[in-house]
Design a protein around this nucleic acid. Structure first.
Lengths: 188, 188
DNA sequence: CGGGGGATGTCAGGTACTGACATCACAATA
DNA sequence: TATTGTGATGTCAGTACCTGACATCCCCCG
């Protein structure tokens, strides 16, 4: 695994996650990550804006996917329907990477700087989904509320899915979480 | 204004805000801030964990205040009543520092790293207020929802208060925002 | 076979942040 | 008054993050 082998970005992401999962985020240096990926520190910073971003490139891809799905949903679908359908598509794509998701979750949950980045990524994602809904003709504040609800559902379902003791499919958990939100909000 | 003069922490906060407001956050070095406060870089890092934190020490004080107010409210007061009362107390304390608040807001709104920090501070604040509510006997999910609603109210009111063209009192804006949330949630 | 371009490496440097130790002002107390 | 302790600050050295400038390498296209 060295220079000129394909998928440099992916190699860096993998190496970073492995090292963060082992020694922790702070203890790991970018030089170490790059070395493990057969590259140099300078190349790391060509692919990722900073040391944290390497864990969130996947989140950017997720955002693109969700926005596309929301945008492309049939016009007959309700706002929350379009959002949850998009989330389920994403969930099925992630299904094969549960272990990866668990490692990533652990790394983030044990480090403050990573949690900061996670929060702003989710906030950005909510904004992007709200914009996609508005492009479908959904008015405010419905668009923003629906997007925020979608994020909340995703967070809850993701927590459950990455929980060791839970063996259900991610997409199922999305659907369940939506159901619970429905019940909760229907209550008085 | 130099070594051994009182209020080193305050001097650093003031110097930092002035420099961030002028040249922007990224362009300002910690050495510059320290120099302007008549101190050294090393001392800056004794008071603040990192370069961003100097803008958020006030937020920590705010959190302490809000939690104390919620905890100390008469037991007859409803959850949302306790939270908004606390927010109004905070608002009155901030009332004299509108210009300061505006500068701070501008600095944060023009920088991503600072927005990250802001988000995690607000999230932490919501958790702390939810805990204070639970200590009053409020059950979940009411406690968390009320705390989140309180933060939302605070954010909206703060935006309005720091808006140049708005001359209303901060505490009044808090009260108004709560009213709007009431109407919004009563709809349908 | 000879560019040309994109990916990577090398190097130098700035800035954030930290640990270890020295120094200073002040206060308590002998 | 002299001493000594204590907390705040300074000094210094070092590591790691991150960036700009330029060199080098591989591969594709003509």
């Amino acid at each position: 695994m060295s220079r000129w082998e394909p998928n440099a970005k992916g190699r860096l992401e993998r190496a970073a996650l492995e090292l963060y999962a082992n020694g922790g985020f702070e203890q790991t240096t970018v030089a170490e990550i790059a070395k493990r990926a057969g590259l140099t520190e300078r190349t790391f910073f060509r692919y990722f804006g900073d040391k944290r971003e390497v864990l969130f490139a996947g989140a950017d891809r997720l955002q693109t996917l969700l926005v596309d799905e929301v945008t492309g949903a049939p016009s007959s679908v309700t706002p929350i329907g379009a959002v949850t359908a998009a989330l389920e598509v994403a969930a099925r794509l992630l299904q094969d990477n549960r272990e990866f998701a668990q490692q990533r979750r652990n790394a983030i949950s044990t480090n403050n700087e990573l949690q900061e980045r996670e929060l702003i990524k989710l906030a950005t994602l909510a904004l992007a989904m709200a914009a996609a809904l508005r492009a479908r003709g959904v008015k405010e504040p419905t668009a923003s509320l629906t997007a925020e609800a979608g994020i909340a559902i995703f967070k809850v379902a993701f927590e459950r899915w990455t929980d060791e003791s839970n063996e259900q499919e991610f997409a199922t958990l999305i659907r369940d979480s939506l159901g619970e939100l429905r019940v909760l909000t229907a209550d008085q």
